[in-house]
Design a protein around this nucleic acid. Sequence first.
DNA 1: TTAAGTGCAAATTATTTGCAGTAAG
DNA 2: CTTACTGCAAATAATTTGCACTTAA
Lengths: 145, 145
Amino acid sequence: MDCKTEMNSRGGEWLRSAGLRPTRQRLALADLLVGDGKDRHVTAEDLYAFACRSGASVSLATVYNTLKAFCDAGLMREITVDGSKSYFDTNTSSHPHYFWEDTGEVTDAPAGQIEISRLPVAPEGTEIVNVGVVIRLRRKSVINQ
Amino acid sequence: MDCKTEMNSRGGEWLRSAGLRPTRQRLALADLLVGDGKDRHVTAEDLYAFACRSGASVSLATVYNTLKAFCDAGLMREITVDGSKSYFDTNTSSHPHYFWEDTGEVTDAPAGQIEISRLPVAPEGTEIVNVGVVIRLRRKSVINQ
DNA sequence: TTAAGTGCAAATTATTTGCAGTAAG
DNA sequence: CTTACTGCAAATAATTTGCACTTAA
């Protein structure tokens, strides 16, 4: 199959900018991820479900492999917000996240929510890879106030 | 088996303070965790290995169940520092952690490493359960400087 | 007693991998 | 053409669970 038609999508540019071969599956996933230019936070299952719903034919294994490829290429970043699943963020800069306990959703915390006033110091012989900040939220039930 | 002998250990007090029935297994694990009064950060496998090494007879499933029971009782806190495993901290207060990529070890980051100067605001209808801060460290190889 | 705790082994869940086919350059 | 990518199904890894047995209170 020839993919030229989709090569002009935002996802196509995104892939090309990282030197990744734009296959049909990658283009479909890339467009789902960055098609509208908004930051997205997904699990592999999430993205797989989106792809299926949007009519793309991709296997779950390929979604996993592709997300990993995108991270290796620097297009995305894996974030650790909850022990049970891996989340992937299209915004590769280091920034704080909200984790919504009830839905398992992850969103960006508005800038300025946390200010790291004292830059953390790396212990002797180490370097800081990144500093993760996760604000875990619980929806208040109306009953329990 | 009668457990009175070990009921005077630090682990015994710890269990009693939370109203947990001090079984042989729980006492053994509790002593391993808080026996010396230092904060400890363990995975279930870690604790299981410690227990085996120290001669205690506990099953891995019981270690999992027990760690969960300790968390439910407020004696420990589960922390999310790495996607693949769950870590449990004997220090239940909210504080930043170092995650050592090479060994998978977790330690407390010295106080003052990060200062949360602007208390994060919970979105409408939510409350903040906790704010997790993880400083991911990579050991610098001598070669790559 | 008796309800809570324990230990297996089997079940689940998230993720990875081997390998035979398929497609991009 | 040739090598990278894909898809399935099987393999792993971490964790949970069902259930018969044990034990603390």
